[in-house]
């Protein structure tokens, strides 16, 4: 499953960052690397982008980016 499948408030561990070069690189540079834990904080008014918390800070990404982040099943 991917990060886009998580509900608001759910946490998961990143398994892999797939997707095209520039995007996966950008996401990894921002700390979304395999093994890190991620929490979905909220989604914007029109459902996109979403706010996540990773490595102790908050980040906004679009759902298309969330779809390339593979995560383990949600931990509540």
């Amino acid at each position: 499953m991917t990060l886009a499948n998580l509900e608001i408030g759910e946490k998961a561990t990143v398994k892999a960052v797939t997707g095209e070069g520039a995007i996966s690189k950008r996401l990894m540079e921002m700390g979304i690397v395999p093994g890190v834990s991620i929490r979905v904080v909220k989604s914007a008014p029109f459902g996109d982008p979403i706010e996540i918390r990773v490595k102790g800070y908050n980040l906004a990404i679009r759902r298309t980016e969330a779809e390339v982040i593979e995560v383990s099943s949600a931990i509540n």
Partner: peptide
């Protein structure tokens, strides 16, 4: 192509 939208929400 839509550039990645990856934006920090600073405290």
């Amino acid at each position: 192509p839509p550039p990645p939208f990856v934006m920090e929400l600073p405290p």
